[in-house]
Design a protein around this nucleic acid. Sequence first.
DNA 1: ATAATAGTGTCTGTCAGACAATATCTA
DNA 2: TAGATATTGTCTGACAGACACTATTAT
Lengths: 240, 240
Amino acid sequence: VRSSDGSADWPDRPRFALAVDAVVLTIADDALQVLLVERAYEPLGWALPGGFVNAAESLDQAVRRELREETDIALTHLEQLQTYGAPDRDPRERVISVAYLALVPAVGAPTAGSDAARAAFFTVEAALSELPLAFDHATILADGVERARSKLEYTSLATSFCPPHFTMAELRRVYEIVWNERLEPANFRRKVLKTPGFVIGTGRRAQPGVEGGKPAELYRAGDEVVLQPPLRRAVEEGLN
Amino acid sequence: VRSSDGSADWPDRPRFALAVDAVVLTIADDALQVLLVERAYEPLGWALPGGFVNAAESLDQAVRRELREETDIALTHLEQLQTYGAPDRDPRERVISVAYLALVPAVGAPTAGSDAARAAFFTVEAALSELPLAFDHATILADGVERARSKLEYTSLATSFCPPHFTMAELRRVYEIVWNERLEPANFRRKVLKTPGFVIGTGRRAQPGVEGGKPAELYRAGDEVVLQPPLRRAVEEGLN
DNA sequence: ATAATAGTGTCTGTCAGACAATATCTA
DNA sequence: TAGATATTGTCTGACAGACACTATTAT
Protein backbone atom coordinates (compact mmCIF):
# COMPACT_ATOMS: atom_id res chain seq x y z
CA VAL A 1 0.00 0.00 0.00
CA ARG A 2 1.31 3.36 -0.92
CA SER A 3 -1.38 5.68 0.49
CA SER A 4 -2.98 6.94 -2.67
CA ASP A 5 0.02 6.80 -4.89
CA GLY A 6 3.22 5.05 -5.67
CA SER A 7 6.18 7.20 -6.35
CA ALA A 8 6.76 9.92 -8.89
CA ASP A 9 8.73 7.46 -10.96
CA TRP A 10 5.82 5.04 -11.34
CA PRO A 11 4.07 6.33 -14.36
CA ASP A 12 2.71 2.91 -15.27
CA ARG A 13 -0.44 3.17 -13.20
CA PRO A 14 -3.61 2.37 -15.16
CA ARG A 15 -5.69 5.26 -16.53
CA PHE A 16 -9.44 5.36 -16.82
CA ALA A 17 -11.99 7.19 -18.88
CA LEU A 18 -14.06 9.33 -16.52
CA ALA A 19 -17.63 10.39 -17.07
CA VAL A 20 -20.23 12.35 -15.17
CA ASP A 21 -23.91 11.41 -15.41
CA ALA A 22 -26.82 13.27 -13.89
CA VAL A 23 -30.19 12.24 -12.53
CA VAL A 24 -32.16 15.41 -13.23
CA LEU A 25 -35.52 15.22 -11.49
CA THR A 26 -38.48 17.51 -11.80
CA ILE A 27 -42.18 17.41 -11.13
CA ALA A 28 -44.58 17.80 -14.00
CA ASP A 29 -48.06 16.51 -14.78
CA ASP A 30 -48.43 15.34 -11.19
CA ALA A 31 -45.53 12.92 -11.57
CA LEU A 32 -41.86 12.68 -10.78
CA GLN A 33 -39.95 12.96 -14.04
CA VAL A 34 -36.37 12.44 -15.10
CA LEU A 35 -34.43 13.97 -17.96
CA LEU A 36 -33.16 11.45 -20.52
CA VAL A 37 -31.27 11.85 -23.76
CA GLU A 38 -31.34 9.63 -26.79
CA ARG A 39 -27.91 8.33 -27.59
CA ALA A 40 -26.45 9.09 -30.99
CA TYR A 41 -23.90 6.28 -30.93
CA GLU A 42 -23.83 2.64 -29.99
CA PRO A 43 -25.20 1.42 -27.71
CA LEU A 44 -28.29 3.30 -28.85
CA GLY A 45 -31.31 3.98 -26.67
CA TRP A 46 -32.09 6.34 -23.80
CA ALA A 47 -29.61 7.29 -21.15
CA LEU A 48 -28.98 9.80 -18.40
CA PRO A 49 -27.43 13.03 -19.64
CA GLY A 50 -23.72 13.22 -19.11
CA GLY A 51 -20.38 13.03 -20.79
CA PHE A 52 -16.67 12.73 -20.36
CA VAL A 53 -14.72 14.90 -17.98
CA ASN A 54 -12.17 17.20 -19.56
CA ALA A 55 -8.57 17.01 -18.45
CA ALA A 56 -8.51 20.27 -16.54
CA GLU A 57 -12.01 20.78 -15.17
CA SER A 58 -13.45 19.77 -11.81
CA LEU A 59 -16.20 17.16 -11.58
CA ASP A 60 -18.76 19.80 -10.66
CA GLN A 61 -17.73 21.91 -13.61
CA ALA A 62 -18.02 18.92 -15.89
CA VAL A 63 -21.56 18.03 -14.90
CA ARG A 64 -22.68 21.66 -15.05
CA ARG A 65 -21.17 22.03 -18.50
CA GLU A 66 -22.86 18.90 -19.79
CA LEU A 67 -26.21 19.93 -18.37
CA ARG A 68 -25.93 23.43 -19.74
CA GLU A 69 -25.70 21.87 -23.17
CA GLU A 70 -28.84 19.83 -22.48
CA THR A 71 -31.11 22.34 -20.91
CA ASP A 72 -31.06 25.98 -19.93
CA ILE A 73 -33.00 25.35 -16.75
CA ALA A 74 -31.41 26.77 -13.63
CA LEU A 75 -30.41 23.89 -11.39
CA THR A 76 -31.80 24.69 -7.96
CA HIS A 77 -29.94 21.81 -6.41
CA LEU A 78 -26.94 19.74 -7.43
CA GLU A 79 -25.18 17.17 -5.32
CA GLN A 80 -22.88 14.26 -5.93
CA LEU A 81 -24.65 10.93 -5.69
CA GLN A 82 -22.17 8.09 -5.99
CA THR A 83 -19.52 6.70 -8.27
CA TYR A 84 -20.14 3.64 -10.39
CA GLY A 85 -17.10 1.71 -11.49
CA ALA A 86 -17.95 -1.89 -12.25
CA PRO A 87 -15.39 -3.07 -14.83
CA ASP A 88 -18.04 -4.13 -17.34
CA ARG A 89 -20.61 -1.37 -16.92
CA ASP A 90 -19.70 -0.08 -20.36
CA PRO A 91 -19.45 -2.91 -22.90
CA ARG A 92 -16.76 -1.26 -25.03
CA GLU A 93 -14.24 0.02 -22.53
CA ARG A 94 -14.01 0.58 -18.82
CA VAL A 95 -15.59 3.91 -17.86
CA ILE A 96 -15.85 5.26 -14.34
CA SER A 97 -18.94 7.38 -13.85
CA VAL A 98 -19.46 9.95 -11.12
CA ALA A 99 -23.21 10.34 -10.78
CA TYR A 100 -24.95 13.51 -9.67
CA LEU A 101 -28.46 14.32 -8.50
CA ALA A 102 -30.01 17.55 -9.74
CA LEU A 103 -33.43 18.98 -8.95
CA VAL A 104 -35.15 21.56 -11.11
CA PRO A 105 -38.51 23.32 -10.87
CA ALA A 106 -41.30 22.22 -13.15
CA VAL A 107 -40.64 23.63 -16.57
CA GLY A 108 -41.85 23.29 -20.12
CA ALA A 109 -39.84 21.41 -22.71
CA PRO A 110 -36.26 20.44 -21.96
CA THR A 111 -35.19 22.89 -24.64
CA ALA A 112 -33.26 20.32 -26.60
CA GLY A 113 -30.21 22.48 -26.86
CA SER A 114 -27.12 22.44 -28.99
CA ASP A 115 -25.92 19.03 -30.04
CA ALA A 116 -28.38 16.98 -28.03
CA ALA A 117 -29.78 14.39 -30.36
CA ARG A 118 -33.00 14.34 -28.43
CA ALA A 119 -33.79 15.09 -24.82
CA ALA A 120 -37.06 14.67 -22.96
CA PHE A 121 -38.53 14.21 -19.53
CA PHE A 122 -40.03 10.82 -18.72
CA THR A 123 -41.86 9.75 -15.62
CA VAL A 124 -39.52 7.82 -13.37
CA GLU A 125 -41.92 4.93 -13.50
CA ALA A 126 -41.76 4.76 -17.29
CA ALA A 127 -38.00 5.20 -17.34
CA LEU A 128 -37.53 2.29 -14.98
CA SER A 129 -40.10 -0.11 -16.33
CA GLU A 130 -40.74 0.66 -19.99
CA LEU A 131 -37.46 1.96 -21.34
CA PRO A 132 -34.31 -0.04 -21.49
CA LEU A 133 -31.82 2.45 -20.11
CA ALA A 134 -28.24 2.19 -21.34
CA PHE A 135 -25.42 0.84 -19.17
CA ASP A 136 -26.24 0.77 -15.44
CA HIS A 137 -28.30 3.92 -15.69
CA ALA A 138 -31.41 2.23 -14.31
CA THR A 139 -29.49 1.54 -11.12
CA ILE A 140 -28.18 5.09 -10.98
CA LEU A 141 -31.67 6.45 -11.51
CA ALA A 142 -33.11 4.26 -8.76
CA ASP A 143 -30.36 5.39 -6.39
CA GLY A 144 -30.98 9.03 -7.26
CA VAL A 145 -34.71 8.74 -6.67
CA GLU A 146 -34.11 7.04 -3.34
CA ARG A 147 -31.70 9.79 -2.33
CA ALA A 148 -34.27 12.45 -3.22
CA ARG A 149 -36.98 10.61 -1.30
CA SER A 150 -34.96 10.33 1.83
CA LYS A 151 -33.57 13.86 1.72
CA LEU A 152 -37.11 15.23 1.64
CA GLU A 153 -37.53 13.69 5.06
CA TYR A 154 -34.87 15.59 6.89
CA THR A 155 -34.11 18.67 4.80
CA SER A 156 -36.04 21.49 3.18
CA LEU A 157 -34.89 20.28 -0.21
CA ALA A 158 -38.44 20.00 -1.54
CA THR A 159 -38.42 23.72 -2.27
CA SER A 160 -35.91 23.00 -5.05
CA PHE A 161 -38.75 21.48 -7.05
CA CYS A 162 -40.82 24.64 -6.72
CA PRO A 163 -40.84 27.87 -8.72
CA PRO A 164 -39.60 31.06 -7.02
CA HIS A 165 -43.02 31.64 -5.46
CA PHE A 166 -45.23 28.79 -4.40
CA THR A 167 -48.15 27.96 -2.17
CA MET A 168 -48.23 25.58 0.74
CA ALA A 169 -50.38 23.23 -1.33
CA GLU A 170 -47.80 23.16 -4.13
CA LEU A 171 -45.03 22.34 -1.68
CA ARG A 172 -47.13 19.62 -0.12
CA ARG A 173 -47.88 18.24 -3.58
CA VAL A 174 -44.12 17.81 -4.10
CA TYR A 175 -43.97 15.53 -1.09
CA GLU A 176 -47.06 13.65 -2.09
CA ILE A 177 -45.73 12.95 -5.57
CA VAL A 178 -42.20 12.04 -4.55
CA TRP A 179 -43.37 9.83 -1.70
CA ASN A 180 -46.53 8.61 -3.43
CA GLU A 181 -48.49 9.12 -0.26
CA ARG A 182 -51.08 11.60 0.97
CA LEU A 183 -50.21 14.15 3.66
CA GLU A 184 -52.61 15.93 5.96
CA PRO A 185 -52.67 19.59 4.83
CA ALA A 186 -53.08 21.02 8.31
CA ASN A 187 -50.29 18.99 9.87
CA PHE A 188 -47.97 19.60 6.94
CA ARG A 189 -48.49 23.32 7.15
CA ARG A 190 -47.83 23.32 10.88
CA LYS A 191 -44.59 21.40 10.46
CA VAL A 192 -43.26 23.57 7.65
CA LEU A 193 -44.09 26.88 9.32
CA LYS A 194 -42.69 25.73 12.66
CA THR A 195 -39.31 24.98 11.07
CA PRO A 196 -37.40 28.25 11.00
CA GLY A 197 -36.04 29.07 7.56
CA PHE A 198 -37.90 26.37 5.63
CA VAL A 199 -40.07 28.89 3.76
CA ILE A 200 -40.33 32.66 3.88
CA GLY A 201 -43.74 34.26 3.59
CA THR A 202 -44.13 36.93 0.97
CA GLY A 203 -47.08 39.18 1.70
CA ARG A 204 -48.71 38.20 -1.57
CA ARG A 205 -51.40 35.70 -2.39
CA ALA A 206 -51.90 33.42 -5.36
CA GLN A 207 -54.76 33.71 -7.82
CA PRO A 208 -57.56 31.35 -6.90
CA GLY A 209 -58.10 28.55 -9.35
CA VAL A 210 -60.98 28.34 -11.76
CA GLU A 211 -63.04 26.58 -9.11
CA GLY A 212 -62.63 29.43 -6.67
CA GLY A 213 -61.51 29.00 -3.11
CA LYS A 214 -59.59 31.18 -0.73
CA PRO A 215 -56.40 32.53 -2.34
CA ALA A 216 -53.34 30.85 -0.86
CA GLU A 217 -50.42 32.76 0.57
CA LEU A 218 -47.25 32.69 -1.53
CA TYR A 219 -43.94 31.63 -0.02
CA ARG A 220 -40.39 31.49 -1.28
CA ALA A 221 -37.67 29.01 -0.36
CA GLY A 222 -35.49 29.68 2.65
CA ASP A 223 -31.93 28.48 2.99
CA GLU A 224 -31.59 24.73 2.95
CA VAL A 225 -32.32 23.70 6.48
CA VAL A 226 -32.38 20.47 8.47
CA LEU A 227 -35.71 19.26 9.82
CA GLN A 228 -35.43 18.28 13.44
CA PRO A 229 -37.26 15.98 13.86
CA PRO A 230 -37.81 14.94 10.23
CA LEU A 231 -40.99 14.73 8.27
CA ARG A 232 -41.95 11.12 8.08
CA ARG A 233 -43.14 9.02 5.22
CA ALA A 234 -45.16 5.94 5.99
CA VAL A 235 -43.57 2.82 4.54
CA GLU A 236 -41.33 1.67 1.74
CA GLU A 237 -43.38 1.26 -1.40
CA GLY A 238 -43.82 2.45 -4.94
CA LEU A 239 -40.93 2.19 -7.35
CA ASN A 240 -37.43 0.84 -6.85
CA VAL B 1 -23.69 16.19 -24.98
CA ARG B 2 -23.27 12.58 -25.89
CA SER B 3 -24.83 10.85 -22.89
CA SER B 4 -21.83 9.41 -21.17
CA ASP B 5 -19.69 8.76 -24.19
CA GLY B 6 -18.83 9.92 -27.64
CA SER B 7 -18.56 7.28 -30.26
CA ALA B 8 -16.45 4.20 -30.51
CA ASP B 9 -14.19 6.05 -32.90
CA TRP B 10 -13.38 8.77 -30.39
CA PRO B 11 -10.46 7.34 -28.54
CA ASP B 12 -9.08 10.78 -27.68
CA ARG B 13 -11.00 11.18 -24.46
CA PRO B 14 -8.75 12.09 -21.51
CA ARG B 15 -7.72 9.35 -19.07
CA PHE B 16 -7.26 9.75 -15.34
CA ALA B 17 -5.37 8.02 -12.60
CA LEU B 18 -7.91 6.57 -10.20
CA ALA B 19 -7.34 5.96 -6.50
CA VAL B 20 -9.41 4.68 -3.60
CA ASP B 21 -8.85 6.08 -0.11
CA ALA B 22 -10.49 4.89 3.08
CA VAL B 23 -11.53 6.59 6.29
CA VAL B 24 -11.21 3.65 8.69
CA LEU B 25 -12.76 4.56 12.02
CA THR B 26 -12.63 2.68 15.28
CA ILE B 27 -13.13 3.40 18.94
CA ALA B 28 -10.21 2.93 21.30
CA ASP B 29 -9.10 4.55 24.54
CA ASP B 30 -12.45 6.29 24.83
CA ALA B 31 -11.86 8.19 21.61
CA LEU B 32 -12.78 8.04 17.94
CA GLN B 33 -9.69 7.01 16.02
CA VAL B 34 -8.72 6.87 12.37
CA LEU B 35 -6.21 4.66 10.60
CA LEU B 36 -3.39 6.56 8.91
CA VAL B 37 -0.31 5.42 7.02
CA GLU B 38 3.00 7.15 6.70
CA ARG B 39 3.82 7.82 3.08
CA ALA B 40 7.00 6.36 1.67
CA TYR B 41 7.22 8.75 -1.26
CA GLU B 42 6.83 12.46 -1.85
CA PRO B 43 4.82 14.18 -0.61
CA LEU B 44 5.81 12.61 2.70
CA GLY B 45 3.70 12.69 5.83
CA TRP B 46 0.57 10.93 7.02
CA ALA B 47 -2.31 10.04 4.79
CA LEU B 48 -5.43 7.92 4.59
CA PRO B 49 -4.75 4.35 3.52
CA GLY B 50 -5.47 3.72 -0.11
CA GLY B 51 -3.93 3.20 -3.49
CA PHE B 52 -4.49 3.03 -7.19
CA VAL B 53 -7.23 0.98 -8.74
CA ASN B 54 -6.12 -1.86 -10.97
CA ALA B 55 -7.33 -2.02 -14.53
CA ALA B 56 -9.71 -4.94 -14.06
CA GLU B 57 -10.98 -4.73 -10.48
CA SER B 58 -14.09 -3.05 -9.14
CA LEU B 59 -13.82 -0.08 -6.80
CA ASP B 60 -14.98 -2.15 -3.85
CA GLN B 61 -12.44 -4.80 -4.63
CA ALA B 62 -9.72 -2.17 -4.85
CA VAL B 63 -10.42 -0.66 -1.46
CA ARG B 64 -10.73 -4.07 0.19
CA ARG B 65 -7.45 -5.16 -1.34
CA GLU B 66 -5.65 -2.06 -0.16
CA LEU B 67 -7.05 -2.38 3.35
CA ARG B 68 -6.21 -6.05 3.54
CA GLU B 69 -2.61 -5.09 2.99
CA GLU B 70 -2.83 -2.55 5.83
CA THR B 71 -4.65 -4.45 8.50
CA ASP B 72 -6.16 -7.86 8.96
CA ILE B 73 -9.13 -6.49 10.86
CA ALA B 74 -12.49 -7.63 9.59
CA LEU B 75 -14.33 -4.62 8.24
CA THR B 76 -17.77 -4.69 9.83
CA HIS B 77 -18.97 -1.90 7.59
CA LEU B 78 -17.81 -0.43 4.30
CA GLU B 79 -19.60 2.15 2.24
CA GLN B 80 -18.68 4.58 -0.47
CA LEU B 81 -18.35 8.11 0.79
CA GLN B 82 -17.76 10.49 -2.08
CA THR B 83 -15.43 11.14 -4.98
CA TYR B 84 -12.87 13.90 -4.86
CA GLY B 85 -11.64 15.18 -8.19
CA ALA B 86 -10.33 18.72 -7.88
CA PRO B 87 -7.75 19.12 -10.66
CA ASP B 88 -4.99 20.17 -8.26
CA ARG B 89 -5.68 17.91 -5.31
CA ASP B 90 -2.49 15.99 -6.10
CA PRO B 91 0.41 18.34 -6.81
CA ARG B 92 2.14 16.06 -9.31
CA GLU B 93 -0.63 14.81 -11.53
CA ARG B 94 -4.37 14.77 -11.59
CA VAL B 95 -5.73 11.88 -9.52
CA ILE B 96 -9.40 11.11 -8.97
CA SER B 97 -10.04 9.57 -5.58
CA VAL B 98 -13.09 7.53 -4.63
CA ALA B 99 -13.31 7.73 -0.84
CA TYR B 100 -14.78 5.03 1.37
CA LEU B 101 -15.89 4.91 4.98
CA ALA B 102 -15.07 1.78 6.98
CA LEU B 103 -15.90 0.97 10.58
CA VAL B 104 -14.06 -1.65 12.60
CA PRO B 105 -14.40 -2.86 16.18
CA ALA B 106 -11.85 -1.73 18.71
CA VAL B 107 -8.71 -3.73 18.20
CA GLY B 108 -5.09 -3.74 19.25
CA ALA B 109 -2.33 -2.57 16.96
CA PRO B 110 -3.09 -1.98 13.28
CA THR B 111 -0.86 -4.95 12.52
CA ALA B 112 1.37 -3.02 10.18
CA GLY B 113 1.15 -5.61 7.47
CA SER B 114 3.11 -6.31 4.35
CA ASP B 115 4.61 -3.33 2.63
CA ALA B 116 3.03 -0.66 4.79
CA ALA B 117 5.78 1.73 5.75
CA ARG B 118 4.00 2.52 8.98
CA ALA B 119 0.38 2.44 9.96
CA ALA B 120 -1.24 3.59 13.17
CA PHE B 121 -4.51 4.75 14.66
CA PHE B 122 -4.75 8.41 15.67
CA THR B 123 -7.58 10.18 17.39
CA VAL B 124 -9.62 12.07 14.85
CA GLU B 125 -8.96 15.22 16.81
CA ALA B 126 -5.20 14.79 16.54
CA ALA B 127 -5.39 13.83 12.87
CA LEU B 128 -7.31 16.97 12.04
CA SER B 129 -5.50 19.48 14.21
CA GLU B 130 -1.98 18.27 14.85
CA LEU B 131 -0.99 16.31 11.77
CA PRO B 132 -0.68 17.82 8.36
CA LEU B 133 -2.53 15.25 6.27
CA ALA B 134 -1.46 14.81 2.68
CA PHE B 135 -3.54 16.06 -0.26
CA ASP B 136 -7.15 16.82 0.64
CA HIS B 137 -7.28 13.98 3.14
CA ALA B 138 -8.27 16.27 5.99
CA THR B 139 -11.41 17.17 4.07
CA ILE B 140 -12.12 13.52 3.30
CA LEU B 141 -11.64 12.61 6.94
CA ALA B 142 -13.96 15.36 8.10
CA ASP B 143 -16.59 14.23 5.61
CA GLY B 144 -16.24 10.64 6.75
CA VAL B 145 -16.62 11.53 10.41
CA GLU B 146 -19.67 13.60 9.65
CA ARG B 147 -21.18 10.71 7.70
CA ALA B 148 -20.58 8.35 10.59
CA ARG B 149 -22.07 10.82 13.07
CA SER B 150 -25.22 11.29 11.10
CA LYS B 151 -25.69 7.62 10.24
CA LEU B 152 -25.65 6.74 13.94
CA GLU B 153 -28.78 8.83 14.22
CA TYR B 154 -30.99 6.89 11.89
CA THR B 155 -29.41 3.46 11.55
CA SER B 156 -28.14 0.71 13.82
CA LEU B 157 -24.65 1.24 12.42
CA ALA B 158 -23.13 1.79 15.86
CA THR B 159 -22.96 -1.96 16.36
CA SER B 160 -20.23 -2.01 13.70
CA PHE B 161 -17.89 -0.45 16.25
CA CYS B 162 -18.59 -3.21 18.77
CA PRO B 163 -17.10 -6.67 19.20
CA PRO B 164 -19.30 -9.71 18.45
CA HIS B 165 -20.75 -9.57 21.95
CA PHE B 166 -21.28 -6.30 23.77
CA THR B 167 -23.24 -4.77 26.60
CA MET B 168 -25.77 -1.98 26.40
CA ALA B 169 -23.26 0.32 28.12
CA GLU B 170 -20.63 -0.40 25.51
CA LEU B 171 -23.05 0.39 22.71
CA ARG B 172 -24.10 3.57 24.43
CA ARG B 173 -20.45 4.51 24.88
CA VAL B 174 -20.04 4.34 21.10
CA TYR B 175 -22.69 7.00 20.69
CA GLU B 176 -21.27 9.13 23.45
CA ILE B 177 -17.79 9.10 21.94
CA VAL B 178 -18.83 9.67 18.34
CA TRP B 179 -21.28 12.41 19.25
CA ASN B 180 -19.24 13.77 22.15
CA GLU B 181 -22.36 14.03 24.26
CA ARG B 182 -23.82 12.16 27.21
CA LEU B 183 -26.89 9.96 26.77
CA GLU B 184 -29.32 8.90 29.46
CA PRO B 185 -28.76 5.15 30.03
CA ALA B 186 -32.41 4.33 30.74
CA ASN B 187 -33.75 6.17 27.71
CA PHE B 188 -31.04 4.81 25.45
CA ARG B 189 -31.79 1.27 26.51
CA ARG B 190 -35.50 1.75 25.96
CA LYS B 191 -34.94 3.10 22.45
CA VAL B 192 -32.54 0.35 21.39
CA LEU B 193 -34.64 -2.51 22.71
CA LYS B 194 -37.83 -1.06 21.27
CA THR B 195 -36.29 -1.04 17.77
CA PRO B 196 -36.79 -4.54 16.32
CA GLY B 197 -33.57 -6.03 15.02
CA PHE B 198 -31.19 -3.44 16.43
CA VAL B 199 -29.61 -5.88 18.88
CA ILE B 200 -30.26 -9.53 19.68
CA GLY B 201 -30.05 -10.66 23.28
CA THR B 202 -27.84 -13.63 23.98
CA GLY B 203 -28.74 -15.32 27.22
CA ARG B 204 -25.28 -14.66 28.59
CA ARG B 205 -23.98 -11.96 30.89
CA ALA B 206 -20.70 -10.09 30.98
CA GLN B 207 -18.17 -10.39 33.78
CA PRO B 208 -18.62 -7.58 36.30
CA GLY B 209 -15.75 -5.12 36.37
CA VAL B 210 -13.21 -4.93 39.14
CA GLU B 211 -15.47 -2.50 40.98
CA GLY B 212 -18.32 -4.98 41.06
CA GLY B 213 -21.81 -4.15 39.96
CA LYS B 214 -24.58 -6.20 38.41
CA PRO B 215 -23.35 -8.20 35.41
CA ALA B 216 -24.69 -6.72 32.20
CA GLU B 217 -26.53 -8.75 29.59
CA LEU B 218 -24.61 -9.43 26.39
CA TYR B 219 -26.08 -8.60 23.00
CA ARG B 220 -24.98 -9.16 19.45
CA ALA B 221 -25.65 -6.96 16.43
CA GLY B 222 -28.83 -7.47 14.43
CA ASP B 223 -29.17 -6.72 10.76
CA GLU B 224 -28.59 -3.10 9.88
CA VAL B 225 -31.88 -1.46 10.55
CA VAL B 226 -33.39 2.00 10.18
CA LEU B 227 -34.38 3.86 13.34
CA GLN B 228 -37.83 5.33 13.00
CA PRO B 229 -37.83 7.91 14.51
CA PRO B 230 -34.07 8.44 14.80
CA LEU B 231 -31.97 8.79 17.86
CA ARG B 232 -31.18 12.45 18.28
CA ARG B 233 -28.00 14.22 19.10
CA ALA B 234 -28.23 17.65 20.66
CA VAL B 235 -26.39 20.26 18.60
CA GLU B 236 -23.54 20.62 16.16
CA GLU B 237 -20.32 20.85 18.08
CA GLY B 238 -16.98 19.19 18.65
CA LEU B 239 -14.70 18.58 15.68
CA ASN B 240 -15.17 19.30 12.01
C1' DA C 1 -23.22 -2.79 54.95
C1' DT C 2 -21.46 0.15 51.17
C1' DA C 3 -20.20 1.14 46.63
C1' DA C 4 -20.84 0.34 41.94
C1' DT C 5 -23.08 -0.85 37.86
C1' DA C 6 -27.44 -2.81 35.50
C1' DG C 7 -32.05 -2.44 34.78
C1' DT C 8 -37.26 -0.84 35.70
C1' DG C 9 -40.98 2.37 36.45
C1' DT C 10 -43.13 6.70 35.98
C1' DC C 11 -44.13 11.55 35.28
C1' DT C 12 -44.24 15.21 31.90
C1' DG C 13 -43.72 18.08 27.86
C1' DT C 14 -43.47 17.95 22.88
C1' DC C 15 -45.31 16.87 18.76
C1' DA C 16 -47.61 14.39 14.92
C1' DG C 17 -52.14 12.29 13.33
C1' DA C 18 -56.92 13.06 12.92
C1' DC C 19 -60.44 15.98 12.09
C1' DA C 20 -63.76 19.69 13.11
C1' DA C 21 -64.48 24.55 12.38
C1' DT C 22 -63.78 28.96 10.19
C1' DA C 23 -62.28 32.16 6.24
C1' DT C 24 -62.37 33.79 1.55
C1' DC C 25 -62.74 33.19 -2.97
C1' DT C 26 -65.83 31.86 -7.79
C1' DA C 27 -70.03 30.80 -10.01
C1' DT D 1 -76.63 31.00 -2.09
C1' DA D 2 -73.47 26.55 -2.78
C1' DG D 3 -69.00 24.74 -3.75
C1' DA D 4 -64.13 24.88 -3.39
C1' DT D 5 -59.83 25.69 -1.37
C1' DA D 6 -57.07 27.82 2.53
C1' DT D 7 -56.27 28.27 7.27
C1' DT D 8 -56.99 27.73 12.25
C1' DG D 9 -58.06 25.18 16.40
C1' DT D 10 -58.25 21.17 19.30
C1' DC D 11 -58.17 16.50 21.02
C1' DT D 12 -55.31 12.46 21.60
C1' DG D 13 -51.76 8.96 21.51
C1' DA D 14 -46.77 8.03 20.96
C1' DC D 15 -42.53 8.90 22.66
C1' DA D 16 -38.23 11.17 24.50
C1' DG D 17 -36.11 13.58 28.60
C1' DA D 18 -35.58 13.44 33.42
C1' DC D 19 -35.10 10.97 37.34
C1' DA D 20 -36.44 7.99 41.23
C1' DC D 21 -36.26 3.29 42.40
C1' DT D 22 -34.98 -1.75 42.40
C1' DA D 23 -31.51 -5.64 41.35
C1' DT D 24 -27.11 -7.91 41.57
C1' DT D 25 -22.47 -8.02 41.96
C1' DA D 26 -17.60 -7.02 44.71
C1' DT D 27 -15.20 -5.66 48.86
